[in-house]
Design a protein around this nucleic acid. Sequence first.
DNA 1: ATAGTGACTTGCAAAATGCAAGTGATATCT
DNA 2: AGATATCACTTGCATTTTGCAAGTCACTAT
Lengths: 113, 113
Amino acid sequence: MAKGPKHRSGCPVSASLEVLGDRWSLLIVRDLMVRGFRRFKEFQQSGEGIATNILAGRLRRLQQAGIVTAEVDDEDARAVNYRLTEKGIDLAPALLELLIWGSRHEYCEAPCN
Amino acid sequence: MAKGPKHRSGCPVSASLEVLGDRWSLLIVRDLMVRGFRRFKEFQQSGEGIATNILAGRLRRLQQAGIVTAEVDDEDARAVNYRLTEKGIDLAPALLELLIWGSRHEYCEAPCN
DNA sequence: ATAGTGACTTGCAAAATGCAAGTGATATCT
DNA sequence: AGATATCACTTGCATTTTGCAAGTCACTAT
């Protein structure tokens, strides 16, 4: 089998965006990280308005990327617990910087500073 | 006219992703910031493979968001010079953190540390 | 005057997204 | 035990976005 290049370009930023560069992935990571979400339904009802098929797809892609794990719950065999891996937790600084930027420049209820 | 909410959710991360949450926008900012790109054609030929219609759309959206400015060149009336605003420059930390994360976890030519 | 060049726009096929409804495997209630 | 509810999805379909090739238009160079 021919082995294609692993990434579209040699830049780590580009490599990051291949998996995280969309409207939802980083919001899912944020909810796992700061809001403590574990369940499918929590994301679904989080108010951001993600469709269930998209949510399922993103959770799967994040798993494949090694950012998230999914385990069946001990006490309820229907339920799945999603968690961040180390790799996922390592997104904290990037998420924080996006938060800071958004706070300063985008999300201004009151007049911007 | 009815005034809708300014943002889809009250979270600054979400607000940031409304304009930056796609495959290309942050790469354009990166190229303006670290590679010093100024011209349409430079982005087009940068090797990432962005289509010209998408590039035009992203540059327009980044302008509308106040992240980028576009000015006709002094010496060549055909040419447009794109530049980052302060707001755009303020994305440096977020970009850097994505770079760090990508370097550590995604872009590993050699075995990962 | 003619031939480029830079920055787009247009047309169209393919892929991704959004929405509503449905499915299947548990779990809970009566 | 049987009916009902819950959780985590999947499916079908319309809409939107993306990607690719080609074309346009203003301006510049020869």
